[in-house]
Nucleic acid binder design. Structure first.
Lengths: 161, 161
DNA sequence: CGTCTATTGCGAGCTGGTCGCAAGTAGTCT
DNA sequence: AGACTACTTGCGACCAGCTCGCAATAGACG
């Protein structure tokens, strides 16, 4: 559902920025409106927290952050908001190993990797991955969707120690 | 998948083979003993089922299969057995998107990919991945451990349809 | 300002997986 | 073969992460 595109909807005055990556310069509220969905206080709080955090974060931590703004916000609401934002393409969620899945702004197109030793979350540059994707498609027809899964391994710190 | 077994290992007289990849030609029981762990009926049933299945499988389905041999086997036992086999390096488990994690014999070193549309589990050839791993290590110091995570995307079937 | 519907808060519930414990059994020693 | 001991099992309770149903609330729009 909700297939209306962001662009082409001049909300009010806003010379609509072309990308979410300017998110930090646009208010969460404007962003929501721009996507044609209700700008409720809980949603604004969640999106604000997500923008402020800048990086993958799990739903519980995000709830905590959002509660700083909007104390009554419920965990279930955060999950639902993530679902909405995800459908709109504003955020995506990443499955990382055992733990909870992580959420991040979609403009961050790097791949997420989780260190099995220390649990650190590392962003890996997307270049090599793009090559992997095209190789893979050529070889198998399978089109990888990075950004929906996390890689696992051992980070540089833990390797040396 | 299809990492077919090297045939031709004497079943019982067993001069211990060096690798798990001969799994299909050696009994699960022998394999367990070889690794110095107790060959109990539940464990044998689980490992047998895993060998027979040949491919990634989730714990519940594995429990079903194992129960064909050993009806009283409990789900918790299957999880524990997976844990033991995993520590021994006989199997590894793969985290696939939302659903349950999958188990497979370790000799199957290909990467697992899950189709987001149809849920199909596809094995991707390891060649391109090995290149990704070395690229990644050079670039970031992060050593990827494939086989512990699944990639996600859209399979060839769903792309065309 | 009033209406109408999307959204929220809340608690119950579901799934995947783990844990503690008493009973059972594999492996070892005699 | 029989006894012993420690590892395993089955079982149920429990936990985390997440979803759902529903009544109450509150945005958006006229």
């Amino acid at each position: 559902m909700r297939r209306d595109a962001p662009q082409g909807t001049q909300p009010d005055a806003g010379p609509p920025p072309f990308e979410v990556e300017v998110a930090t310069s646009i208010s969460a509220e404007q962003l929501l409106r721009q996507y044609g969905c209700r700008a409720t206080k809980p949603r604004i709080a969640v999106l604000d927290a997500l923008i402020a955090h800048d990086g993958p974060i799990d739903a519980i931590a995000l709830t905590d952050l959002a509660q700083a703004d909007e104390p009554s916000i419920h965990e279930a609401t955060v999950y639902r908001t993530i679902g909405v934002l995800s459908e709109l393409g504003i955020v995506n969620h990443v499955h990382a190993g055992h733990g909870p899945s992580l959420v991040r702004l979609s403009d961050n197109s790097d791949l997420v990797a989780v260190c099995q030793d220390c649990g650190a979350i590392v962003d890996l540059p997307g270049k090599a991955i793009r090559r992997l994707i095209s190789d893979m498609q050529r070889a198998t027809g399978f089109i990888l969707e990075p950004g929906h899964f996390a890689l696992e391994g051992v980070c540089a710190n833990c390797t040396t120690s």
